[in-house]
């Protein structure tokens, strides 16, 4: 089971940010297991991080590891689709309903 490192970039504490954060938590539960690492970055507090990653849209979720960096944008409302786009393996029992 790979150990994922995920970073979610949001703008402040808007309803859309809150929703994306909640959906990230759900994603982490769906992945399950131990040793994963996820982080929420508020761009208003760290605009230079948005510059570094050359972000345009928010929310943006970046899979920093393992492997090449991959990103999706949006409020992550569809856990399965997010996992598919980022190439994440979900724990058994998830993704079928």
């Amino acid at each position: 089971m790979p150990k994922y490192s995920l970073k979610l970039y949001v703008i402040g504490r808007s309803p859309r940010s809150q929703l994306a954060i909640a959906n990230l938590e759900a994603l982490m539960r769906a992945i399950g297991g131990e040793g994963h690492d996820h982080e929420v970055v508020d761009i208003l507090e760290n605009p230079e991080l948005a510059e570094q990653e050359r972000l345009l849209a928010t929310p943006t979720l970046i899979k920093a590891a393992p492997g090449p960096s991959v990103r999706v944008i949006g409020d992550l409302s569809d856990t399965k689709a997010v996992a598919e786009a980022l190439g994440l393996e979900l724990a058994a029992g998830h993704g079928r309903g």
């Binding site: 703008i11 605009p47 948005a50 943006t60 409302s77």
Partner: peptide, 25 residues
């Protein structure tokens, strides 16, 4: 767009808040 940039999937609602924040910064 940089060489090697892939098309980014959109899942759910988004906006260009990051771009605006970078411009303001």
């Amino acid at each position: 767009i940089q060489h090697g940039d892939q098309e980014i999937a959109a899942i759910g609602h988004y906006d260009l808040g990051a771009l605006l924040a970078r411009i303001e910064h």
